[in-house]
Each structure stands twice: as structure tokens, then as C-alpha cells.
Amino acid sequence: MFSPEYKLMIVAEYENAPNGEKGAILRREGLYSSHVIEWTRARDAGALTTGGSETPPPARTRKSAEQVELEKLRRQNEKLKSDLAKTRMALDIMGKAHALLEGLSEGAENEPPSKTS
């Protein structure tokens, strides 16, 4: 279930995207073009509003190419920050595992062989 705010945001982004970028938005969000068509019709009919107020939806404003690009780069930046944090955490875990295995290996080399009869 998608919130009205999300639907309005996606419709606006989709409408303001250059022709070659519209499919990328759908793929990124895991949506179909039928979603955007349905949401656009609902918005135009006044059925898609944010909050519970009876005020009509805000008039559509076209974003400049720079604004669209800036929003795209900000989202990409946030994703990359998240990926970097995950990578750093994985490297930290790998370093700790390596140190643990190295310590176990050294301990096994220093122990006298066990006598079995």
C-alpha cells in the first residue's frame, strides 16, 4: 500500500523526468507504468490528496532539469552512503574474524602435541 504523499511524489518525478529517464524511475521504485497512470488520474480527479483535508490538490509545478537532477543525485548520494556504511561494517567484521583465526592458529602451534595411546 502506497501513501498518497509517495504517489504524488512519484507522479511529479515521473512527469518531470526526461523521456529516457522515466523507465529508470519505474525500475528503481519497482513500479509499472499502470501505477503512474492510475495515480495521475486519481490526482487529476482530486481523489489523491495528502492528509485528511478537503482542500484540492496543489497545482502541478514543473521542476527544472537542475532540480530533477539535484533530487536524483541526492537520492543516489544517500544510497551510496548507506552502501559505504554496510561495506565498512563488513570489513570490520572480516578484520575481527581474521584476528580471531590468527590467534587460534598461533595458539594451536604453541601447544605441545597430545599423547594418545
Rank of each mutant, 00 (worst) to 15 (best):
Y6K: 08
L80A: 01
R28K: 09
T49C: 08
S82E: 12
G52K: 03
G107C: 06
K96M: 02
M94H: 14
A45D: 10
T116H: 12
T40M: 05
K96P: 00
A42K: 01
K81V: 08
N16Q: 12
R74Y: 10
S64A: 13
G52S: 09
R75S: 12
E109T: 14
K7A: 01
A45E: 11
P4Q: 08
G23F: 07
Q76M: 15
E29Y: 05
S82Q: 07
G103A: 11
G30V: 01
P18R: 10
A99Y: 12
V68M: 13
A65Y: 07
K63H: 10
A108Y: 04
R60W: 13
E38P: 01
K115F: 14
E109A: 09
V36I: 09
E106P: 03
M1D: 10
A85G: 08
G23K: 02
I37M: 13
L26Q: 01
R41L: 12
Y14C: 00
S82T: 07
R62D: 08
R27F: 09
K7C: 01
E111Q: 05
V36G: 00
M1H: 13
A17N: 04
M9P: 01
S114H: 02
M9V: 06
L84Q: 10
E29G: 01
N110V: 10
V11D: 00
A90K: 10
L100Q: 15
E102M: 15
T50G: 02
L31D: 06
E54Q: 06
S53C: 15
A85M: 15
M94G: 06
R75Y: 15
T49F: 00
